[in-house]
Design a protein around this nucleic acid. Structure first.
Lengths: 200, 200
DNA sequence: GTCTATAGCGGGATAGAC
DNA sequence: GTCTATCCCGCTATAGAC
């Protein structure tokens, strides 16, 4: 028997814990992990910093939980996009389009790793390992889609699917980074070009 | 008459000032602008924090000076690469190769903007404006090279040169970001793919 | 131009009352 | 579970002696 119970339609490990995760996830779409504080979180939730420490003793704990939380979220989003798609090429189009909507409006829900990656070396080993695993999983998914789509003649690119996937993810990450400085049009240009270069 | 004089072969606005800039530039290749402190700088120089404030009153001043300093540096590097190249396609190859050497070993000397961009919204307006100008200049240079190279039949890509340039720079930026988490092979894969996708 | 000393802030984290 | 109060740290920045 699990440590949680169903209450109505939501898990009751702790409603507050879930609420904190959701609020933190929202903050992460605007700031990096290192850039938001327990104080920011507390203000949005209308409680005190110390209360957050009760649910997540250290910020590292919060980071790990957040990565898990987002792994589920983006997994569900990918499943939805893949389910709707008529084939691998169409799936790639949907993914890129969703990236554009989501990165511009709410941040990186498709591949949450970006907001952590920014902090690079400053991350703890625990968080970095978790992040790496998540990123590689996503990379592999995209690489497989690219290979399938090329096999079906739906897209065209040279070289290894894995390198192509790496380049596309890196470009999305870099464009998201550049957005506050160069504006949204820069980001749109990158997404447009990624689709065009595949022949989508 | 300029505010500086030549002494031997180097400028004497202030040797120390120049030394600080160079040390800061080196730090920026490993950390972001927000991530290094006057304390880090002071330790490397063997002086105290307060002495650095004497040369750069605020960190913002240092940031602006740093962007100017690097604009010169990367300008010289571009000039060198363009001078050695046999044509626009060869120039692009040399630039990408240099990015790979330099980003992996010493940081982003080719396009210094990356280390600032990481800090995104946290930057002051002054620094952000300066950064934007530098980034756009570099973007334009790459776009022109791409256009010329395509005109000469040396490279192939679809769409606007400006979008292609934006995508390439974003990919390099994103790959540099990911390097501490995913390792050097990820970065190499991106550079490899960027060249391959152009047909270089 | 460099130093010591310190102010002021905001970050993460803890102790203990309620 | 949440609160108040507090600690310790590192950061930018300033004042004033040398």
């Amino acid at each position: 028997m699990p440590a949680y119970q169903l209450v109505g339609s939501c898990l009751a490990v702790s409603d507050r814990k879930q609420q904190i995760l959701e609020t933190a996830a929202e903050l992460l779409t605007h700031k990096s992990f290192a850039a938001f504080s327990y104080q920011d979180l507390a203000e949005r939730l209308g409680i005190r910093k110390a209360s957050i420490h009760h649910h997540f003793a250290t910020k590292d704990d919060l980071g790990v939980a957040l990565l898990g939380f987002w792994r589920e979220r983006s997994g569900a989003m990918m499943a939805e996009l893949l389910g709707d798609a008529t084939g691998p090429g169409d799936a790639l189009t949907r993914i890129l389009d969703r990236c554009e909507e989501v990165l511009l409006d709410m941040g990186n829900q498709v591949c949450p790793a970006g907001a952590f990656e920014v902090d690079g070396q400053a991350l703890s080993d625990r968080v970095r390992e978790e992040l790496k695993a998540e990123k590689l999983t996503f990379l592999e998914q995209i690489a497989e889609l690219l290979q399938a789509a090329r096999g079906a003649g739906e897209v065209a690119f040279l070289g290894e699917p894995r390198d192509q996937a790496a380049t596309m993810l890196a470009a999305l990450q870099g464009a998201r980074q550049a957005e506050p400085v160069l504006g949204r049009e820069f980001f749109r240009g990158v997404v447009r070009q990624l689709k065009r270069s595949l022949g989508l």
